[in-house]
Structure formats: structure tokens, C-alpha cells
């Protein structure tokens, strides 16, 4: 059983499990959406004193902070107890495309060229990560949600705004993939 769980899970098991988590949170009286935590953390850090957007009672969001704390633990369990020693099975075409733009596939979850220690502590690498994070944080709040809040919670509730947001996610993602990434490595 453990050996089976250690292997990469097929997409349909993960898709079903994500739907299960969304329903589970509804049953707990909550709504699945991770990016709200970023606003909560800003509020806890004191942003509410200066900016009205952050002046709210964050304690109602305590459950969501516990959820992302669990998510970190889930990552830790996956990288220890459920560790799989096989390299990531990435599509050959993607490996070739990335090689062509100067990014070598290393079989890990995330490329060393972006997330390795040397990359993080280089000025260029640091700027890529912090600017990328800023775009995600700004965009998620502007759009009122991220992949969980819009693509899962919103689309399953047949929300047109969520469909527009998901189309936006893809426009941005394609722009970075084809216009920005080729000049970075």
C-alpha cells in the first residue's frame, strides 16, 4: 500500500481528491480558497492600521491559516515518508523546449536554475522569485481569488467571473511562457 502511495498519483485520483477537499471544506462551513491567507497575513502584520482593505477581523480566517499550515506538513510528509526516488516524468517535448531556452531539466519538482541555493542568492534569481510572487499576490487579490478560489470553487459553482479569471490566468501564463521565459536563462 505504502509503495503504491509513494509513486506519482494519476491525474484522476488527484482531481477527485481535490473535489473531495472542496466539498469537505463546504461541509465544515468554509470556502476553499488559499490566496485569502495572504491578505490575512498582511492584516496580522499590522497593515490594517494604514490601509483600510486590511482592517478586518482576521480571526474568522484562522481556519484557513491552519489549512495552509497543514499543507506545509503535507509537503513535508510527501518528501519524507512518501518520497519517490524516480525522476519526474516530464514530456519529452517540454524537456526539449526548455533546453532550447537554456533551462536544463534536472528531474526534480522545481528547477535548480530557479530554486537552487545559488539561484536564490543571486540578484537575478532573487528578483525573478520576488517579482513573480508580487504578480501572483497582486493578481490574485485584484481578481478576487486564485486557482483554488476561482478554478475550483468558482467554476464548480458555475460563476462566469471565475471563468473570465481562469482565462486571464492562461493569457498571463502563456505570455510568460512564450515572451518572458526565453530571455531569462
Amino acid at each position: 500500500m505504502l509503495e503504491l502511495l509513494k509513486q506519482p498519483w494519476p491525474w484522476w485520483t488527484a482531481g477527485a481528491a481535490i473535489a473531495f477537499i472542496m466539498v469537505l471544506l463546504l461541509y465544515f462551513g468554509k470556502s476553499f480558497g488559499v490566496s485569502s491567507n495572504l491578505r490575512t497575513i498582511c492584516t496580522i502584520a499590522g497593515a490594517g492600521k494604514r490601509v483600510k482593505f486590511f482592517d478586518f477581523d482576521w480571526k474568522a480566517q484562522r481556519w484557513n491559516l491552519l489549512f495552509i499550515f497543514g499543507a506545509v506538513l503535507g509537503g513535508l510528509i510527501s518528501s519524507t515518508l512518501l518520497k519517490d526516488d524516480q525522476p519526474l516524468q516530464l514530456a519529452e517535448a517540454t524537456i526539449a523546449d526548455l533546453k532550447a531556452i537554456g533551462l536544463a531539466f534536472d528531474g526534480q519538482l522545481n528547477p535548480g536554475q530557479l530554486y537552487g541555493t545559488a539561484a536564490i542568492f543571486s540578484l537575478k534569481g532573487f528578483l525573478i522569485l520576488i517579482l513573480g510572487g508580487m504578480l501572483v499576490g497582486f493578481g490574485a487579490r485584484y481578481a478576487g481569488g486564485c486557482t483554488s478560489g476561482h478554478a475550483i470553487s468558482g467554476l464548480t459553482n458555475m460563476q462566469l467571473p471565475s471563468l473570465i479569471a481562469v482565462i486571464g490566468f492562461f493569457i498571463g501564463g502563456l505570455a510568460t511562457t512564450y515572451l518572458i521565459l526565453p530571455h531569462l536563462f
Binding site: V34, G139, T147, G172, G173, T176
Partner: peptide
């Protein structure tokens, strides 16, 4: 506007970092 513009800005960062908030 907020969904299209916000979504696109989000997407730019998503493909760059390879990670959405979760």
C-alpha cells in the same frame, strides 16, 4: 475588468514561479 486584468497579472507570475498560492 478585475477578473481579466487581475487574472492575467496572476498568470504572469504563476508561470514565472511555477506556483500558485497553495
Amino acid at each position: 475588468a478585475r477578473y481579466m486584468l487581475g487574472g492575467t497579472i496572476f498568470g504572469l507570475g504563476w508561470a514565472l514561479t511555477g506556483a500558485c498560492p497553495g
